[in-house]
Amino acid sequence: MKRLIEQGKNGAKAVLFLLIVTGFLTSCYTDYGLSSQDHDLVITQYNKKTNFSKYKKYAIIDSVFHITGDTSKPNSEYLSRAYDDFIINTIKNNMNSLGYTEVVNPKDTNDVDIVLYVAALGTKVEQYYYGGWWGGYPCCGWGYYPPYWGYPGYVGTSTYYVGSLFINYVDVANITHPTVDVEWHAILNGLLDNSSHTITQNRLKEKIDQAFDQSPYLSVK
């Protein structure tokens, strides 16, 4: 009898040990510890029929359009204009490297082959989740403002901010009102955070350069 009890105890210990080990090893969604930068996306699109080699001269609109959904508000609530010039200059550097020639202050559409314009959109995202279960982005500490937690015991919220930059490449011959056909465009999307000015600039440069690097067909050299 004693032997049986001892075996039972050993068996229970073994089960407990295995349960603990498997519990530690198994979770639905592994946390890869992604940083804000790891959530950056660079999307480029173009039309296969476009012959980019015919374009040589370009002009770029010298300010970034902030999409606010309200024409009386030219500045986004969530985006700073401190990076606008840097963004425009980085795009110019890439275009010049690809063999294009910039035309400053063109008199009319005959002076250029293409026009580039840049738009930016900042979005506030509020995420709700139920106690004990986490299903999305970002984990604590991300976002321009720290995510806050509320409604203890019932439901929590997390707030984060997403920024998108749209770079559009338009053949002036194809500009028809009210729509504009773009030959190529890039969308840069990522979490906004409270990094320093330099770090944010480096991140913007890296992603704008990436948009052009992954579009070698734009080269007119």
Partner: peptide, 25 residues
């Protein structure tokens, strides 16, 4: 059983004449 993977390869999509490339984790 839990399967997971982190991938940083570029996604390339062609739909008709429209070609998309997506760089991201």
């Amino acid at each position: 059983n839990v399967f997971d993977q982190k991938i940083t390869d570029m996604i390339h999509i062609e739909e008709g004449d429209k070609v998309s490339d997506i760089d991201g984790t």
